[in-house]
Amino acid sequence: MSTVTVIDPTMTATREIEFRDALREAMSQEMRRDPRVFLLGEEVAQYNGAYKVSKGMLDEFGPRRIIDTPISESGFAGMAIGAAMMGLRPIVEFMSWSFSLVAADPILNNAPKMLYMSGGQFGCPIVFRGNDGAGGQLGSTHSWCVEGLYSNVPGLKMAIPSCPEDAKGLMTTAIRDDDPVFFLESERMLGMKGPVPEGDYLIPFGQAKVRREGTDCTLVSFGRPVNFCLDAAAELAKEGISCEVLDMRTIRPLDIDSIVRSVRKTNYCVVVDQSWSFGSPGSEVASQVHQHCFDDLDNFVHRVHSADVPTPYAFNLEQEYLPNARRICEAVRSCLYRA
């Protein structure tokens, strides 16, 4: 994996663990700390998690707090929202965010709107989490990037970590947050290893992280494609192009200030977003950068997205479909008039 320069100033990570272990540590630490927190979803308990994120949690917390559900997303998501309205703090695992589409009504119509529609009477402190995005040759229906669809809805927060350390810190923040959090993981990253502090720590929402400093072009991304950006930046460095890689970590709220700061320095901006381009977080970032940095930009904001087609199964097509390092390099060269 590419070099990750972030270290929380108050902690020193002395060991490396997998992304999935980092998620589990955050959930387990919070469950020990707060009895209102529980986990439910398909295969989370006896099976130890379809992707082993919740491995061992049934043994520690028992079946009353680690709850296997039937394949019934609309039902169990709605049930968890009702429980959150009463003050519990459910963590709902969607085996894949692709499966959340059948629960669109509760997760979009109830959770993010409850506080508003009840005039401040009932909040919804809940975390929905699961795998997001393509990369495993699962075909189009199982490869959804839901950030484009769901980040459109007011009242929710959306965290999309790109490395194990952020996975743990952002998950801890998500569970303690009083508002609904959509937490997007990636099946392709669950085995990724990185330094992770052992204690509990919070990474605040709405604070981007500079993953790599640079002077020629700002690369804005979140989630798995941050790693593609780091690969691209390493490649472009060989050509003498210095990229600054910004990891947004959350896109709701969006830390536009950090983007603006970087773009005012580099005067070029490329947004890398694995959702489809039309009406996406990437188009939102581009729009805001154009608004705030109109006089600073030496070219329009370039964007790299997944191809505007259903996700293909074939390995080569799927790799080309994703915003891979090669496509990012091409976009940067084009943006900097070096194509």
Partner: peptide
């Protein structure tokens, strides 16, 4: 849509 919520309210009471 309120029926899953209602089941969740009862779940929370019991929990």
């Amino acid at each position: 849509a309120q029926i899953p919520l209602g089941v969740g309210l009862a779940f929370a009471c019991k929990y």
